[in-house]
């Protein structure tokens, strides 16, 4: 295999933190850990180019470093791009992840990297990349490279990489169905028996942790504010003009309520299979409370009800999709001068 390898200034032998600003450079052949990489890859594999860059330089000039790395991999007709392993070095890990992701996306060349689980590069890139769990200890370089090489060989041969625990990479969080020997009932019984008797057990899914979201400041005087209604309950005008799907919508719609004081069931439909829609169809204000908000607008308690309500279908929606829709809705409302939002969720 022809390999392009990325190292930071430390592993590239240029120096420690004091050299972190050193600019990117390209060397012919293997450097430092690259020699070990050639060895564990075997089969006459060679590191044809080594790209070395200071951690700060990479962090501050990521786009140009990415461009350069992609170009090097392309020019060298490499079969594999390897970055690191980076252990706990955070800036190194983030750069390695970004470079691997760029090479993978632009060239489709197999990529692999390695990091300690706590490296910030892991959270950013685990879903996209095979990141070997290198541990924290630089002395485990060889072990990490052996795992990276095993994954690289499978990627190069276009084979299934296998399970995280078997191959030593950090779970990417991608789910694949498999038919197993034991029914769910047997697995449940095994697990409760283990958990109640103090034996080890392995959960089949690790829960997602959510970062706290900084709360926006309050809007003390709503009588001066424009308030919008947003819902994930799938309410759309009759005829469903945007083609809202009844599950996991990838779209959101904005529907005019400027001249409406009370939503009538006959004018609306619900596209959401996750709850019984009949009550909302009987009176859509139960989901999108236009009637009382317009009253409060007339009473002066609310400055203005935004002229549209925004709607999407939340049911079984992938998180990445929900995040994108959330961003788009927030941006659109912000640009329209909306000060506050009431989101209604089913």
């Amino acid at each position: 295999m022809r390999v392009v390898h990325y190292l930071n200034q430390f592993f590239g032998g240029l120096g420690g933190e004091e050299e972190a600003n050193i600019a990117v450079e390209v060397r012919e052949g293997a450097v430092g850990p690259g020699r070990l990489l050639e060895q564990v890859l075997g089969d006459g594999s060679t590191v044809v180019k080594t790209v070395i860059c200071g951690d700060n330089h990479a962090a501050e000039n990521l786009d140009s470093v990415m461009e350069l790395v992609v170009e090097q991999v392309r020019e060298s007709q490499a079969d594999l791009f390897v970055a690191g392993p980076c252990f706990v070095a955070g800036r190194y890990g983030v750069a390695a992840g970004a470079l691997c992701a760029a090479v993978q996306a632009e060239l489709g060349t197999p990529v692999v990297t390695g990091m300690a689980v706590e490296n910030p590069g892991v959270d950013l890139y685990r879903q996209e990349l095979y990141i070997v769990d290198s541990g924290e200890n630089v002395a485990d370089m060889r072990a990490a490279l052996i795992k990276m090489a095993a994954i690289a060989r499978k990627l190069a041969a276009n084979e299934d990489v296998g399970r995280p625990a078997d191959m030593g990479y950090i779970p990417r969080g991608i789910m694949k169905d498999e038919i197993v020997e034991e029914s769910a009932a047997v697995r449940l019984a095994n697990m409760i028996l283990a958990k109640t008797t103090g034996q080890p057990y392995e959960t089949e899914l690790t829960q997602t942790g959510f970062e706290p979201i900084p709360a926006p400041p309050p809007v003390p005087d709503l009588s001066e504010a424009t308030v919008a209604i947003v819902t994930d309950g799938g309410l759309v005008p009759a005829g469903n003009p945007d083609g809202m799907p009844a599950i996991a919508s990838t779209i959101w719609g904005a529907y005019d309520i400027a001249a409406v004081d009370d939503l009538e069931g006959a004018d609306y439909e619900v596209y959401h299979r996750g709850y019984d829609n009949r009550h909302v169809l009987n009176d859509p204000d139960r989901l999108v409370p236009v009637d009382v908000l317009k009253e409060l607008e007339k009473a002066g308690e609310v400055g203005k009800v935004y002229e549209q309500f925004l709607s999407m279908t939340g049911l079984a929606n992938p998180l990445a999709n929900s995040r994108r829709i959330g961003r788009e809705i927030a941006e659109s409302l912000k640009n329209a001068g909306v000060d506050a939002v009431i989101l209604t969720s089913t």
Binding site: P171, G173, M175, E204, L205, Q207, G209, A316, L319
Partner: peptide, 30 residues
């Protein structure tokens, strides 16, 4: 399984550290 995108991050509707033993049924892509 209710992860439309087959991503573990989309899979759960609760998150409690003490509820740490989960049997996960599939079916989304088979």
């Amino acid at each position: 399984d209710s992860s439309g995108d087959r991503r573990a991050e989309s899979a759960m509707l609760f998150s409690y550290p003490e509820v740490d033993a989960i049997v996960y049924g599939g079916g989304g892509d088979i």
